[in-house]
Nucleic acid binder design. Structure first.
Lengths: 217, 217
DNA sequence: ATCTGATTTGGCACCAGGTGTCAGAATTCT
DNA sequence: AGAATTCTGACACCTGGTGCCAAATCAGAT
């Protein structure tokens, strides 16, 4: 939803002037500066300067300063969508959702630090938290359209929308909790939050990852 | 979280120069212009001009253009907080939450149109949806701190955060659904969404307000 | 070697949102 | 009348973001 460029040229040499940077390069520079200087203290001129391009060029790769943070996130929505489409139809809906979300959030160890700083920035900087809604929207729709298809309801129905939104909300709680605890496993938090959701939050102590290695007490 | 002014003077004549406008006046003018012209096409200069004040003065009442939309919402978080504190301790947690939310959202008929246009603007204009996160935060904390107090857990615990966020998510789904259907009752949607949440979304057809007057089919 | 078309870049002007600063206006109290 | 208080208006300034157009850099055809 954020970048307007999508070359995906196989490798064959294209025609015009070659790009002097890339979305990925700007993303890495931006992320680093956000962590070092803070989001507000990082001007777009600075990011562009460190990439060796002009300010105007930055806006040809991202349509906003916050966009660099969501580059990766947006890409993974498609992944979630695919996992849901391939899920076992015999599973209860909420279990299918839980498994798909867990599968979509299996990150390689080398990608974890970057993910962590992204989530921390989103949770820390108010302006970044603000931009989140637009990107979460596609995530929610991936869930609610799956729910609609499984139940035969309209994607705009209250039930489908509620499942989509509450699922995202539970995952966000898990993400934020994970960032606070540097040692724990992300999927454990996601699993716990989604199990609580699927059981209507009836038992406050279902398999809380923060409560020793044991399960309920 | 938005306004920095909070006079609340009893009525006794204060000391200096009297204000030439009020937050409420700017709110009404802004809301009207947002509906008439659209959010992006409404400049702050225009709002200030119609209120007969300068642009600089507008920013003494609200710290952003979007702030005028959240004036009322922010005030109601305190109300929700109070209702939760007064709730019956014998009720299951999720039922107490549901009843408090329903009570907090009982609007007078005369206030409904304004509420409706606010929600519609939030759902329509991307930039407004973005600002929502900051204001929803206090709402979520009202829920999660109540849950923490009832369960003896930390307000930052995964369970408390997950309940707060998912409750808000369910209510937002109900709000948005309500805006699409001009005739229905808001509390009916809220009740249905929160019941679904408390039952872990196990039954897709629990008392859906959109499914005739009957309950399940 | 040169021309042509395609693609990206850089610079410029411009608008709107938002902030810091300070002088001045309008009120009440003494 | 004068002092203290509170709000306002004007100005300068920064940053994010957009429209526009000329220039740069490539591949391929002439």
């Amino acid at each position: 939803m954020n970048e307007q460029v999508a070359p995906a040229e196989p490798a064959g040499s294209r025609r015009g002037r070659p790009p002097s940077t890339s979305a990925r390069e700007l993303e890495l520079i931006g992320l680093r500066l956000f962590v070092e200087l803070g989001f507000d203290n990082t001007t777009i001129d600075r990011i562009a300067a460190e990439a060796g391009v002009s300010r105007r060029t930055f806006f040809r790769y991202f349509d906003s300063k916050a966009g660099v943070l969501w580059n990766a996130f947006d890409a993974e929505v498609a992944n979630l969508h695919r996992l849901l489409a391939e899920s076992d139809e015999r599973l209860p809906i909420m279990q299918a959702v839980r498994l798909a979300v867990l599968a979509a959030n299996h990150y390689r160890a080398e990608d974890v630090p970057e993910l962590r700083s992204r989530i921390e920035l989103i949770g820390t900087v108010p302006e970044l938290a603000a931009t989140a809604a637009m990107h979460y929207d596609a995530w929610e729709r991936a869930i609610s359209s799956f729910v609609a298809q499984r139940t035969g309801k309209d994607p705009q129905s209250l039930y489908a929308m509620a499942v989509g939104r509450t699922t995202l909300a539970a995952c966000r709680a898990a993400f934020d909790r994970w960032v606070l605890r540097a040692d724990a496993d992300l999927t454990a938090y996601l699993n716990s939050a989604l199990n609580s959701l699927a059981s209507g939050f009836s038992d406050p102590n279902v398999d809380d990852p923060d409560l020793s290695p044991a399960t309920s007490r």
